[in-house]
Each structure stands twice: as structure tokens, then as C-alpha cells.
Design a protein around this nucleic acid. Structure first.
Lengths: 218, 218
DNA sequence: ATTTATTTTTAGACAAAACTAAAAATATGT
DNA sequence: ACATATTTTTAGTTTTGTCTAAAAATAAAT
């Protein structure tokens, strides 16, 4: 049996491992979970006993295969519920996080299997983050053109193909820079135009823009 | 703030109050929650301090308006989620209880408002139990003919209109007696025939049966 | 009414998950 | 390298919710 708190720790450690290679520090976990380092030490030791991570004192934590599986399972549930909240209950994409944070802890494999099917097995959540499949495989892709992204997929801007002053000025006006996250909210088949989300703003772009912007998918 | 355990106690006490008037005994609560009487005493004292119920030692507990409101809120959430699981995710009616037991504790008024609307504001859950409205009002109806019930509504058999031997023998064969719970799973408009659930069995009945059976709706 | 049985409560422990304060280990700066 | 700063851990409490065992109150029985 796994507790709610344990699931949250595993999830947080998983995310931190993505950002920086190797062991995750006690302080980093404490900060990301808004708790005290001493509490983290406690929990991390418990999780190490349960073989969900490897912990070396003063060095940090590293998920085991078992721990990573659980973390990815929680993330899969979180993102599927976010899709449900936005697509079926018409929540706005930025209102769903706290609710999904609760729903992700409901324990029932059958529920998630059916929810996934009901939602049409989506690949991305409303924030553009990829949804792991039932085997825990995360679609980890490389640099792409923005125009290659699908609906609901997101990426971080990593460069431009064309670098004319006009184009850069346009990007500046739209507050797109290296490191800016972009989510595809909609895509038109016949002309490749898109509606994208940048920060709080949603706007329309033509295929000419989308074909000249490189993004790193998550 | 209210905890998960507190919600479960309030819900259990609410159900016990329906079955027997007046105060609910410590032992009764312990039995219905599958826990020890000493634990119940503890929790009931905490809930009394929070003004969710009135507790007199050695006498039992009685919900206050505040406590009852919370209990009904939890029951509303439970039953709405059950409808979701059956109608949208195609679960069978007898598989959904444990999952709804978890979903009922997700805290978000907006979520429930939207879920209710999404499901078409149903009046009854898949077990035929009534769903309290957003103000906590439970559709508490009186004795009716089975034929007057709507789809998904349930009732307890309280008597017959016609009492011929043939009819009673039929009821006996179908294991329907005073106190038996009946749920309407489907209703045909043009002839008033129904598919009903009795215990584990589901079967078809004609309007002649439905018009001669009194039920007490829940 | 007084003993017996049942119910309920108290007292004391425990586990999970958090905290504070202090100690220990590691990292940094000159 | 050595003092200082930072990070991490330990030790000791707290809260929530549970338990067991024993005591107290209430109910039942002869």
C-alpha cells in the first residue's frame, strides 16, 4: 500500500530528476513540496526502506524502477483527469491543477483504463504536457518545428529557422523568446494555421510563423 | 477544514440516523465503520468540539445542522460520481461503490456543480438512491405505485394493491417481499413495461405488475 | 436489589507525517 | 588549510486516527 504523501514525494522527485541529472537533494525536494528539509529526510528514508528510491545520506535521492513506475502512474492519472476537466466539464486550462492534484490519488486501475478510453486516449494534457501510456512510456521527443505539433501538445521555444528582423520583432511583440512555453490549442487542417497559448495570452498564428519556430517538446 | 475520516464518520452517522430515530450509539457507528468503539468515542468527541454533532457520553451522537449539511454534501458527491462511472465510463452498477467512496472526498464545489450539469442533473444514482440537490434537499417521497417510478429510481416494497394468490405467487417466485428493494433500470413509454433490479437479478415486468405493487421511495 | 452482562469511556501506545531546534557533515572563501 | 556558511540529519514534539486493555457506567436478569 502506498500513501498519498508518499505518492506526492515520488512525483516531486521524478520531476526534479528530469530537471537535473543524478541525485536529487533534500533541499530541492523540500522547496518543491513547500515543506521542511527535516521532513524530507524522514520521508526519503521511509521510501528508501520501501525500495522506491536509493538514498545516500548527505548525497540525495534517486528513484528506483519501482518508484519511477509509481510516479509516472500518478502523473498519468493527473494529466488524464486534467483532460477530462477541460474537455468534458469545460474548465479553463488554468483552473484544473488543484482538482487534478486530488483526483490523481484515486486508486483504481480499471477507472483509469476506462477514463483513458472515454477521453480517446489523449497524448497531451491541456497544458501541452505528454500523458504517459499505460505502460508508463512517456513520449519524449526532440526539437521540432512548431508546425509539427499536434493539438494540445506543448513545447519550449528553443530557436528560429528564419531570423529576419521582421520575424524577431513579431516574436518580441508576442512575448515569445527562448525558453517561452507554447501550447497548441487548435490547428486548422487546410492552411496549417494555429491557435496557441503563450503565457496568459491566446492568439492566432499562420503557418509561416509555425514553420519558422523550433520548439523542444516535453 | 474537514478531514477525510471526519467526512466518513459524518456520513455513517447520517445513514444511521435515518434507520433509527434519536441518538446514534457508539457501538452502531463502530460496527458500520468497521472500527473499534474506542476509536469512535475519540472521533465523536472531536466532532462535537467542532460543533458538527451533539454528543452526550454514554448516550450517543446526533448531527447538528452543520454536520448534516456536510454529510449530505458528501452523499451528493458520492452519488453523482456513481452516475458518472455508470453512464459515462460504462461501469456496472455494482462495481462503482469503492471508487465513488474515494471520489466523494475531492474538494471543489465548482467541480460538483459542473459534474452535475454534465450528467444532466440526475435525481437518482444507479442504485436508485436519490441525489440531494445543491442545497442539500433530499427528494423524500411517500408511498407510490412501482409504475410511477422513473428510470434509476428505487424503492422498498411496502405492499400490494391486488392480493390474488396468482400475483403473490409471482412475487414469491421473483423473490419480491415486503422490505425488498427494487430499482427501475429501464422504462418503456408505449406500454409502461419496465426492467427492474431485485437483489442480483434483473428482469422484465409488465405494467400490470408495476401497477399493483406499492413501494416506499427513499 | 444485587449480581451479571453489555456498552461506553479512559488511559496508554503506536504509526504517519509534519514541525523546531540543535548537531553533524559538506561546501565555500580567502 | 582553516574558518565560515550551507546543507542535511538527528532528536524530540505534535496532530490525526487508530489500537488494546482496563475501568466506569448503564442495562438486563434472577
Amino acid at each position: 500500500m502506498i500513501t498519498l504523501a508518499e505518492e506526492n514525494y515520488l512525483k516531486a522527485i521524478f520531476h526534479l530528476e528530469l530537471e537535473s541529472q543524478g541525485e536529487v537533494s533534500t533541499n530541492a525536494i523540500a522547496e518543491s513540496m513547500e515543506t521542511k528539509p527535516s521532513s524530507v529526510t524522514d520521508m526519503v528514508q521511509r521510501l528508501a526502506e520501501k525500495k522506491m528510491l536509493i538514498y545516500k545520506r548527505y548525497k540525495g535521492a534517486q528513484l528506483t524502477e519501482k518508484g519511477r513506475k509509481i510516479a509516472i502512474g500518478v502523473i498519468r492519472k493527473h494529466r488524464l483527469w486534467e483532460v477530462f476537466l477541460v474537455e468534458k466539464l469545460n474548465f479553463h486550462w488554468d483552473e484544473v491543477h488543484d482538482i487534478a492534484e486530488q483526483l490523481e490519488h484515486v486508486q483504481s486501475d480499471e477507472l483509469i483504463t476506462r477514463l483513458d478510453k472515454y477521453l480517446g486516449s489523449p497524448d497531451f494534457d491541456p497544458h501541452g504536457d505528454p500523458i504517459p501510456d499505460k505502460h508508463g512510456v512517456l513520449k519524449r521527443t526532440e526539437k521540432k518545428l512548431l508546425s509539427e505539433l499536434d493539438k494540445n501538445q506543448g513545447g519550449v521555444c528553443v530557436g528560429v529557422k528564419e531570423s529576419s528582423g521582421e520575424f524577431l520583432k513579431y516574436l518580441d511583440k508576442k512575448k515569445i523568446a527562448i525558453g517561452t512555453k507554447i501550447i497548441v490549442l487548435g490547428k486548422e487542417f487546410f492552411d496549417g494555421s494555429m491557435v496557441i497559448q503563450v503565457g496568459d495570452e491566446q492568439f492566432f498564428i499562420s503557418i509561416k510563423i509555425a514553420e519558422n519556430l523550433y520548439v523542444q517538446t516535453i
